[in-house]
Design a protein around this nucleic acid. Structure first.
Ligand code: MN
Ligand code: MN
Ligand code: MN
Ligand code: MN
Lengths: 219, 219
DNA sequence: TTTATTTTTTAGGCTAACCTAAAAAAATTA
DNA sequence: TAATTTTTTTAGGTTAGCCTAAAAAATAAA
């Protein structure tokens, strides 16, 4: 078994999130940006991860995850999301309070712990933000969700996920009633600034392009 | 607020455990032994902890915890023991499987998390090994327990704690039925090798000096 | 296709936490 | 008290993960 450090795990997770369908290579700068570090530091780490066969790295051409790297990343994401469910379902945290804590808890390394936790939580399928939880074999099925910004006029759907996990954003959603499970209908798209006018149960409200891009809908 | 690293926290906890009633100074070598490291490394760290006002350190004279250091240590012990209760009560771990995992979990830093966990667990007073859990204000009341090795012939009492947390030891206790809550009576003390003959419900068994020293009794 | 800009890598340094070997102080023994 | 042993500290090095500044490669603009 390859053993990975706290820092290495964060790099793997960042690379995973930056290449969702593993479509194309992730750039050094993109990783630096995501991890709030410097490009030179990223290059150092990429060499190390390549030595461990966790990424495919060719100088100046960015990186992709190897099979091992991808499985490692999915394992960390599994832990992250299960801990988030625990915090919300069992300890009464709000969905906007759990992300930072899960960033630490995800590095606790015990298969028995995480499998027991999963059972204790009743094998949840998604985390508090609607993100799918990989199973213990590392199988992750991404649901097909579209951001509000890509919906058409008069199209309806259920809020089923968010792209952004910050407290600031989730708090705003909470306050405006844009929570998971809510049915929304697009009434109008303002071409000028990309904002969207949506209808909920009773009310109608306008959200900015930035907000519309980060709310995910099952249509 | 003073922020402490993973490693610093382990040093503080080790010093705390080595000077229970803060009676006397803890030696460099004792700390090295407890943390499986070298005396030279300990000296390095002692200087750092002294700079942070967490210990009183005089060259060649060992260390004691300051008020801050003691409170920090108790905070970590609180987390350690609450996580152990969680693992046993909620995730069905055995009492001999939780210590190592708690060594990691105790460094997760969130007052809200640990206070919520405590409430979720129903404010337990002791952990799975009978050790008392400090309250959120850092008050820790040690029960008065005596090791079997210090009991007199015909004296009885209830097994209420263990000094050693290793899987090997706890497993042995489990197998011989020497678990928390069990009533025991000392039948005989063998002066030759310090072993002790004890009576349980039905059976009578002999335990070695080493075992007798590590089982704690409320008399 | 040269020139300029951007991205990435290399070079050289820093800090935390460790190590071994040697020096210094304290404690023991003779 | 002097000699020996044990404990502790200092000196000097290592590694992981980070940094800045400079060099090299890739990309875009002229
Ligand atoms: Mn999250
Ligand atoms: Mn989440
Ligand atoms: Mn323990
Ligand atoms: Mn315990």
């Amino acid at each position: 078994m390859i053993t990975t450090s706290f820092t290495e795990e964060n790099y793997l997770k960042a690379i995973f999130h930056l290449s969702p369908q593993e479509a194309e290579a992730v750039s050094t700068n993109a990783i630096a940006e995501a991890l709030q570090t410097k490009a030179a530091s990223v290059t150092d780490m990429l060499k190390k991860l390549a030595d461990k066969n966790l990424i495919n790295y060719v100088k100046y051409q960015g990186v992709t995850l190897t099979h091992n790297g991808r499985q490692a990343a999915i394992g960390i994401i599994r832990k992250h999301r299960l801990w988030e469910v625990f915090l919300v379902d069992k300890l009464n945290f709000k969905w906007d309070e759990v992300h930072e804590l899960a960033e630490d808890l995800e590095h606790i390394n015990s298969a028995k712990l995480i499998d027991s936790l999963e059972a204790f939580l009743g094998f949840p399928k998604v985390d508090p933000h609607g993100d799918p939880i990989p199973d213990k074999n590392g199988v992750l099925k991404e649901p097909i969700l579209v951001p509000v910004s890509k919906m058409n006029i008069n199209q309806t759907g259920i809020i089923s996920g968010v792209k952004e996990h910050s407290t600031l954003f989730l708090n705003y959603l909470e306050k405006t009633g844009l929570v998971l499970g809510k049915r929304v209908k697009v009434q109008d798209l303002i071409e000028f600034d990309g904002s969207v006018i949506i209808a909920l149960d009773k009310q109608v409200l306008t959200i900015s392009r930035d907000v519309a891009k980060n709310i995910l809908i099952a249509v």
